[in-house]
Design a protein around this nucleic acid. Structure first.
Lengths: 171, 171
DNA sequence: CTCGGTGCAAAATCTTTGCACGCGA
DNA sequence: TCGCGTGCAAAGATTTTGCACCGAG
């Protein structure tokens, strides 16, 4: 494979950066330093994040390398919206806060959400997609997507909780 | 049946009002006019609502009947939190806004969410509960609940959209 | 009487927007 | 050069909190 990028499970023809450029050009939007930096950071690691965490990451990296462009909060919000538009990111709401995750070149999945440590654990289920279609058909509903979040306590939190119940934990 | 209340599909021994009183007493909290009015309105109709809609409903009814107590915004928020605590309401986040629905005496279900008219359509699926357990077991995850929202376009919106595309529709 | 409850207003969060300047195409 | 993009600050939207007074138990 020559220009094939492997993002986790799925292979796609273009890198996120290229894919975004394509999106921008198709809309007559411009490829700026800020948008470039944004995509670079967002796809440097596969993880869930919110606007604030991205801001932190951006400010930290720009502090190190003099060449890094500054990206204001407003631009981060505007950029994240574009990335969702472009199909690179998926947006979800958790406890009233917007959380993002990779979508481009990444398979459909859902989440287990630990109420103790706020961690998101991904899982896939093709049965769910099937179930989704059945329900939709019953209600003459045209599906565009879905979001399933199973809440509870993850293994490590359950373990730690059993070992010690110090008052400090209860915050 | 003597003191049996039928809230939709399930029968419970106490009315929401009574159930809430019980909760309050068990916590040493007081049964006030505001809390009473709150519960009364919340359970007068089975529908999804947010804090603002409840505020509207409250102000409208108090305007009519002189006896109705005023309930401030802060108290509404505090009250809704208690109702969730008490297991009478379920809270979910939709587009970053908190939305509530009846939980007490109401069966587990999930939702179809119309992105066009913001309507929530309920549906039940026992397969989902099953699927949920399987996934949890795989990840050694202790489940406390789940939330599935299937997004798309409802039947009526799909129909209307086809018939006319007046600019007025686009808010 | 005694606290918990309430209203009011201010604060806290998170996100969006108006505007003048700067930079990509 | 031309106009979109950006930063800044201010506005918005939603929810939470501090405080003095009120009222349920």
């Amino acid at each position: 494979m020559s220009s094939q990028f492997a993002l986790n499970d799925v292979e796609v023809a273009l890198s996120p950066q290229e894919r975004f450029d394509e999106y921008l050009q198709s809309r007559g939007k411009r490829i700026t330093q800020q948008r470039r930096v944004l995509v670079e950071h967002v796809f440097s690691r596969h993880e869930h994040f919110d606007a604030d965490e991205l801001m932190d990451a951006l400010s930290k990296s720009t502090a190190k390398q003099a060449g890094g462009a500054q990206v204001s909060r407003a631009t981060v919000y505007r950029g994240l919206e574009e990335l969702v538009e472009a199909g690179l990111l998926r947006k979800m709401s958790l406890d009233g806060r917007a959380v993002y995750e990779h979508d481009y070149g990444y398979p459909q999945h859902d989440h287990l959400y630990c109420q103790q440590c706020q961690k998101l654990i991904e899982f896939q289920s093709q049965e769910l997609t099937q179930l989704r279609e059945e329900v939709a058909k019953e209600h003459n509903f045209r599906v565009t997507g879905h979001r399933l979040i199973v809440t509870g306590v993850c293994q490590s939190c359950a373990t730690n909780r059993h070992r010690r119940l110090s008052p400090v934990d209860l915050i």
